[in-house]
């Protein structure tokens, strides 16, 4: 169940084909697995390792390094409240405190119904809307306590499904084009154009030297 479905596997191979070395697709594939399952299961990390030609331990090593990659189940909505300096100055800590109360969970935890996970985030680059937060990496702010309550109620009621897809969907826009020109062809082309550039630069230097000696 947690391996890629047929459709997702097709997307996985499309991603792999974008990189000169397959291992570069590790993080895009981790995002893809989260899009399918909400988080990274052991089985999917094993499959990703197989696809990119590395070991499951290396995939787990990468996955555990990055804040957006979850190796444990998270809620449908991951609410990340920013408490870094710009939000702190505008009440980010207080907003996080209120969020704990409203959701009835501590920071880092998930509600029993599996709807919400609450996180304390570092700067999300939405500082002109402080205090700000993200739900599944979609921006909201500035938020009052009441505004937060409304947001949570709307999410619970399914009113924001078009703005906020379930956790794991990084982008609803997919790349349409495969790599147009194989790397080997580009290399041949660059070799030719570098040679021509060398000739132009040499001619220019010779012309300048001639001008200088006149």
């Amino acid at each position: 169940m947690s391996r890629f479905t047929k459709e997702m596997e097709t997307r996985a191979y499309e991603l792999l084909a974008l990189y000169p070395e397959k291992r570069s697709a590790t993080i895009p594939l981790c995002h893809l697995a989260q899009e399918q399952n909400g988080y990274l299961t052991e089985e999917s990390m094993v499959q990703i390792a197989d696809l990119v030609g590395t070991t499951p331990a290396e995939v787990l090593g990468a996955a555990s390094f990055y804040d957006m990659l979850h190796t444990e189940p998270v809620g449908k909505y991951v609410v990340g409240v920013c408490t870094n300096i710009a939000c702190l100055l505008q009440g980010g800590e207080e907003l996080l405190g209120h969020a704990e109360e409203k959701l009835g969970i501590a920071t880092g935890a998930t509600t029993d119904d599996g709807m919400f996970t609450l996180e304390d985030m570092e700067c999300i680059a939405h500082c002109d809307h402080a205090p700000a937060l993200q739900v599944n990496y979609r921006f909201f702010g500035p938020l009052t306590n009441d505004g937060f309550d409304t947001l949570v109620d709307d999410l619970s009621a399914g009113k924001l499904e078009s703005e906020v897809p379930p956790h794991g969907t990084l982008s609803r826009v997919q790349r349409k084009h495969p790599i147009a020109v194989p790397l080997e062809e580009i290399v041949r082309h660059r070799r030719d154009s570098d040679a021509k550039e060398g000739e132009r630069l040499a001619a220019k230097a010779a012309a300048e030297a001639k001008e200088g000696s006149n």
Partner: peptide, 11 residues
């Protein structure tokens, strides 16, 4: 000729 790839970070 050139290709361009958008690559996501992960936090």
């Amino acid at each position: 000729s050139i290709d361009l790839v958008l690559h996501p970070g992960a936090g």
